[in-house]
Design a protein around this nucleic acid. Structure first.
Lengths: 184, 184
DNA sequence: TCTTAACGCGAGCCAGGGCTCGCATACCAT
DNA sequence: ATGGTATGCGAGCCCTGGCTCGCGTTAAGA
């Protein structure tokens, strides 16, 4: 039941955006009565929260898995593989990505995203700090901040805006960006 | 009168965010009756639109002015000065920046931003195309896309998230990022 | 001073939508 | 079979908020 509601929530979000996301619509999409929603969720916001949390968890787990597989690789290969995994994770559901990234009211959502970003940043900083041969930047924490933010944003924008760039081209540019930066 | 309403709109947006932005609140803040709003604006959305358009225009004009002053400079100095101008423009009103960037419903707003971004990208592509000595990337359009998006996002995130980085450090990192990228 | 029209006012209309509450139904234990 | 409980239902309550409409007021022109 919870399952049906969450899935319906995701569907309404994806198909019509957040501005038309109403409890009645979710109930209808789940083929459930409005009253039943409130047996499992305290309010509308918490339905959205569960949808978003699931999405963020799935996505970050995919990337984390790829990253821990490639953690021994060096520099360019590692950047490329990680970026590739990130792109793949984002490409799973571009419509939901758009809603999460561009339409949702902040509050919990933003906090959740920020938290994931911080974890990734710490990982990256540790990685950079341990490998002076590929990282010539003086401040590993700062470099990690720059790197993670740049890659994340480029990946998201590429998926959402579909600019005139092939996937491989994008990965090449990302690798060049990071490699050039770390060595300068 | 229009002036008072727009200013009140900006104020409500900045002080309480978009979720509590109601026509009644705007009217109260402008010390004006709700009815009077509709003598000058067709609906609520158009009030927001004017506030946003003004902000985007002001900001992009500041950056454009700085850019046209420095257009003869090469590589690092140019990146640094432009990024500096962008930061200064964004720092004028961080609260409004947050609302525009994170809370507003899409539609017109996003279209307006995308349009400005495209212009900047074309400028940057022309600049890069004309200067092969500082740009070793094969595809100038792609390089411009990467560059503009990365710098813009880093600047916005720095202003909004106030990470543990001084302003000068940020500028140094940005210059290193772009210079390293273009030469690799 | 008188007329007129634009300007502004604000109580209130009305639609939309979050949420509730009393009832029905299905399932289980006795 | 029968009583009891948990699960789901859905009409509708009610509040919020965008927007309107008819009235007062003010100021310009005759």
């Amino acid at each position: 039941m919870v399952e049906r509601i969450v899935e319906a929530g995701r569907q309404v979000l994806v198909e019509d955006g957040y501005d038309t996301f109403s409890t009645n619509r979710v109930a209808a999409a789940a083929d459930v009565s409005p009253g039943s929603l409130y047996q499992y969720f305290p309010d509308k916001a918490s339905i959205v929260a569960v949808v978003v949390d699931r999405y963020v968890d799935e996505t970050s787990e995919l990337v984390a898995a790829a990253l821990s597989d490639r953690i021994t690789e060096l520099g360019p290969a590692m950047v490329r593989d990680t970026a590739d995994a990130l792109l793949a994770a984002l490409e799973r559901d571009p419509a939901l990505l758009r809603v999460v990234y561009e339409e949702l009211p902040l509050g919990r959502t933003h906090a959740r995203l920020t938290q994931v970003e911080r974890q990734v940043r710490h990982l990256a900083a540790a990685y950079l700090g341990a490998r002076p041969e590929i990282n010539h930047r003086p401040d590993a924490a700062a470099a990690a901040w720059i790197m993670v933010l740049a890659i994340e944003n480029l990946a998201v924008r590429w998926v959402l805006d579909r600019p005139d760039l092939t996937r491989d081209q994008l990965l090449d540019e990302m690798v060049a960006l990071i490699a050039g930066y770390l060595l300068s």
